[in-house]
Design a protein around this nucleic acid. Structure first.
Lengths: 259, 259
DNA sequence: TGCTAAATCTCGAAC
DNA sequence: GTTCGAGGTTTAGCA
């Protein structure tokens, strides 16, 4: 029985070694890291050319590929999951073509020199959880509408109106309709305009008072004036506050089962 | 004289080897690749937790850091350039903390096992050029306004009006003002509303006929009706056509110098 | 420094 | 399959 290395590293491979290892790795859907000097060209939704330089190329199990320069958060070139690979020789150099079918896009990487190549069998079943998103804020407000204002009753969730989807919809203490637009970060003009369009759309269909409340941790500069002139309200609400409410609620629910 | 390896790879390093190599690499602003089993947590604009699994961690010269899972285009966790690193031992495990100052955000990676670590000195001076962006379309239209319509003269570039910035602004054959909104992809409702707001804003300030032209390779479904009802025009224009015009123009300019 | 708009945006959900 | 909106969006350009 042969026990295969889960992580294989080849330093300074020659072109044929690299070619063979890469073809094998891709056919087996392994994760591959390549570091070397290369030129890159891309044609598809746009086109790009990248001159010679040292880069890190990461090919993943799902057929995605990333080309990273030594600086910057974003990859300089890439291809999303599910693309097809073709590894071949371009003269004396190793070349990788990654082709996406729809939309048709082609990424070509030509290596002048490969410093190292690694083929890896990685196991990753870890759960990822992100807290305090806009969705969480919505849930927290539904659980406890009083964080917006006393007497508020929420009657609809993601109501469809003409310009799009309303985040939250309800009735206030005095029976007026309330439209709520939620932003998890500083709300700008766009958020106000969005809310204004929703309110306008409902006003044209209903013979009742309609209020619009923008809910966000903060307003961008100059936006307050805009809100006032459009007759809309603002309610400060921090995503962290919402996370706490959700947490408490979950604990409570759990305790309901426990006791 | 000591000649240092430009790319150093350590397979299955023990914790102290890894700690030393990593601290040295970060202080020298080298590019680092780490592959191993880790857990990750993030606190900042939001919060996240990632359970144990094999990942690829890339630390760059500019102080950015990316954590990639074996699948997916996007990093599961990251930190943008200019963050500060702290490498330490967490019990028997190697831990990396990457701290961003503004906004204050912290990324912590704890390795249960390191399969390999690579420290690299990479040289990348290659030029990157991307063709046929919205900016290119703007330039092409300015160079040859007749691709929109005969007799069009463009008089302003990125004119500021109340709702935002107009892409292009001009006068048509019959002396009417023309506002142009450019999209490099299929134009949707948002593009139409944007153009409509610009046109409206100019109409309120000027006692002249004002036309709005949406320029894009294609219209989304249902958008044509919207355009008509708002009295706006559409002109089909492909970004590739624009790239060709720019290329020809550059060649022509070159030939003017040559001959 | 802060804000606005674009991105080969990507990704997911809803229709 | 298409469309629409969110994203820890990031990034570039400009007041």
């Amino acid at each position: 029985m042969v026990i295969e290395n889960l992580v294989k590293v080849i330093s300074n491979p020659n072109v044929n070694e690299a070619l063979e290892a890469l073809r094998d790795a891709i056919s087996r859907r392994r994760v591959v890291l390549l570091v070397g000097a290369c030129i890159v060209s891309y044609k598809g939704r746009a086109s790009s050319e990248l001159g010679l330089g040292d880069r890190i190329v990461l090919i993943k199990e799902d057929g995605s590929i990333l080309v990273h320069r030594p600086r910057g958060y974003e990859p300089v070139n890439w291809q999303p999951p599910k693309c097809l690979f073709n590894v071949h020789l371009d003269g004396d150099n190793l070349a990788i073509r990654a082709i996406r079918q729809k939309p048709r896009e082609t990424l070509q990487i030509r290596f002048k020199k490969i410093y190292f190549l690694s083929v890896m069998t990685l196991e990753d079943a870890g759960e990822f959880s992100l807290y305090a998103t806009e969705e969480d804020m919505k849930k927290a407000i539904l659980l406890r509408p009083s964080i917006i204002e006393e007497g508020l009753r929420l009657v609809k969730y993601e109501k469809k109106v003409e310009p799009g989807f309303i985040d939250l919809y309800g009735v206030d203490e005095e029976g007026r309709l309330v439209v709520i637009e939620i932003k998890r970060r500083t709300a700008g003009r766009d958020a106000v305009l969005q809310l204004a369009r929703y309110v306008e759309s409902i006003r044209t269909n209903v013979k009742r008072d309609v209020r619009g409340i923008l809910v966000a941790p903060k307003l961008a500069r100059g936006v307050q004036r805009m809100l006032v002139s459009l007759g809309l309200d603002f309610k400060e609400l921090n995503p962290k506050t919402c996370a706490k409410i959700l947490k408490r609620y979950k604990t409570k629910k759990l305790s309901e089962f426990t006791f």
